Simulated assay, not measured.
Amino acid sequence: MMKTYPLNESDYHLIAAASAKITELYEGNKHHVGAALKTKTGKIVAAVHIEAYIGRVTVCAEAIAIGKAISDGEKEFDTIVAVKHPYADEVDRALKVVSPCGMCRELISDYSEDCFVILDVNGVTVKTKIIELLPLKYTRNS
């Protein structure tokens, strides 16, 4: 069973930052996921994903937020969240917190093994440690 932690005011602020970023920059078939990352220094970094016609070229919003933070000299991360904007043809117009994909789970854990991740589990927004989403992760020493 996944261990979860209570969401706090800072977590809701992070969700709002991701939501604001994707609302501002949403573009059908180009940008439909926004992410926000809080560093251990308290800096909030937000980004959108980059969609490409050839799927393997697409880059997730979490990866771009991590790259942006690292490029700004931030090396330690506290919490990350991704939010999906509905496509133009979707009836439900609500923004939704989404779970990081497998590659993003690897990336988050490679750069911050103790990072919290905010995600939706069965319609409930929860927070957990990245390692809970990537059990038995390889280590560099093995």
Rank of each mutant, 00 (worst) to 15 (best):
I66P: 01
Y138H: 12
V121L: 12
G102W: 14
N141T: 15
R93M: 00
H13F: 09
G67E: 13
C104G: 07
V81A: 00
K3L: 14
T4W: 06
I131T: 11
H32M: 07
K38I: 12
C101N: 14
K137T: 09
A65N: 01
L37N: 01
K129M: 11
L107F: 13
S99P: 09
S109R: 11
K75E: 12
A88D: 06
A69D: 06
S19V: 02
A65S: 08
Y5H: 10
F77E: 03
G73W: 08
A82E: 06
T58A: 09
A16V: 02
M1K: 12
A61R: 00
Y111N: 15
A94P: 02
A82I: 02
I70R: 14
T139R: 15
L95G: 00
T125F: 04
V91D: 05
D120I: 09
P135M: 09
G123H: 06
K30A: 13
H85C: 03
E90W: 04
V57G: 10
E51T: 10
M103E: 12
R140Y: 14
G123F: 07
Y138G: 12
I54A: 15
C60R: 14
E132N: 11
H13V: 07
G28Q: 11
A65C: 04
G42I: 05
G55W: 14
P6V: 05
K75N: 13
K38S: 11
S71C: 14
V83Q: 00
A16Y: 01
V117Q: 02
K84A: 05
T125P: 04
A69W: 03
Y87C: 05
I44Y: 07
D89K: 01
D114I: 08
K43Y: 09
T4P: 08
E27W: 02
H32A: 06
K40R: 13
L25V: 05
E51H: 10
A61E: 02
L14G: 01
K137D: 10
V33A: 03
D114V: 09
F116G: 05
S109Q: 11
L134M: 13
Y5F: 15
Y111G: 09
C104V: 06
E62F: 04
D72I: 09
G123W: 07
I44E: 04
R105H: 08
A65K: 00
H85R: 03
I22W: 00
G73Q: 10
C115H: 03
P6M: 06
L136P: 07
A35F: 01
A82D: 03
L136I: 10
I22R: 00
K96M: 01
I44Q: 04
I131E: 12
A36Q: 01
V97H: 04
Y111C: 13
A69P: 06
G55H: 15
M103P: 07
T58S: 15
V91I: 13
C101W: 06
I130K: 02
E27L: 11
R140E: 13
A88F: 03
A35K: 02
L95Q: 00
D110L: 14
E27V: 07
A20Y: 01
L136F: 14
I108E: 02
D110G: 12
E62M: 09
N122K: 13
A35C: 06
A36C: 06
A20W: 00
V59R: 10
I108P: 01
T4E: 08
G28N: 11
D78Q: 07
D72Y: 13
N29W: 11
D110V: 11
V48K: 02
A18N: 00
I66D: 05
C101T: 08
V45F: 06
P100D: 04
Y138C: 09
D72G: 15
G67N: 14
K75A: 11
